[in-house]
């Protein structure tokens, strides 16, 4: 487990993802990262504004940044695992520098690579919120519990970003099974963003 505040509650990814999705009423875009973050996003129910990233570990945040730059009026969320974020930490500096107002990153921190056999990540002594703040994302916060997570999501929707919310989570696997059809996932997403019309 990364070095979060000691009074931070251990929550559950699927539960937090449902809480997030329940708050999305204005076609906000959500990018699910590799494995469990997109499985739980899938399980939270179909939304045309969801993009399920299947195989490119660490790229949920960069993809979300690209969507945010293309559509500055649309709020965009990235859902990323702690192991995945570690693989692409540099992207936090890019996000801090470009400072898109409409981007929020949610890091599901279980301290392990759950999906590959729950091996601990090398970030045992690291604090993801401190890393993000150190990269220049000033609005970086640990969610103390589920209510605090919801409050932070409300704040992300109401105030200018970029924002990073980190949540300590348990070691449970994701609950959904995303359909592995990358071209269809991409096309549906583009339709959901109003870029394409169905043929």
């Amino acid at each position: 487990m990364s070095a979060a505040l000691s009074n931070t509650k251990i929550m559950n990814r699927a539960d937090l993802t449902c809480r997030l999705v329940a708050k999305l009423k204005h076609e906000e875009a959500v990018i699910g990262g590799i494995g469990n973050t997109n499985f739980d996003l899938w399980a939270a129910g179909p939304r045309p504004q969801n993009f399920y990233m299947l195989g490119s570990m660490g790229l949920a945040c960069p993809i979300a940044l690209g969507v945010a730059l293309a559509q500055p009026q649309r709020p965009v969320f990235a859902l990323e695992g702690d192991g995945s974020l570690l693989m692409q930490l540099g992207c936090l500096t890019t996000i801090a520098t470009l400072a898109p107002k409409n981007l929020a990153i949610i890091v599901m921190d279980n301290g392990i690579y759950q999906i590959t056999g729950s091996q601990p990540t090398p970030a045992r002594h690291a604090d993801i919120v401190a890393i993000a703040a150190g990269c220049g994302i000033a609005a970086s916060h640990w969610a103390a519990d589920e209510e605090d997570f919801e409050r932070l999501v409300d704040a992300a929707l109401a105030t200018a970003g970029p924002v990073l919310i980190a949540a300590r989570i348990d070691d449970k696997p994701g609950v959904g099974a995303t359909r592995r059809d990358p071209a269809q996932i991409r096309e549906r997403f583009m339709q959901g963003l109003g870029v394409r019309q169905p043929i």
């Binding site: 990018i31 790229l59 960069p62 730059l69």
Partner: peptide, 23 residues
């Protein structure tokens, strides 16, 4: 809009998201 990224891979992610968003 031109800027440096920390890795090329990251830039591919950004451009993928931007394309899907219409840019």
């Amino acid at each position: 809009t031109t800027f440096a990224t920390a890795r090329e891979e990251e830039a591919v992610g950004i451009l993928t998201g931007a394309w899907m968003g219409g840019r």
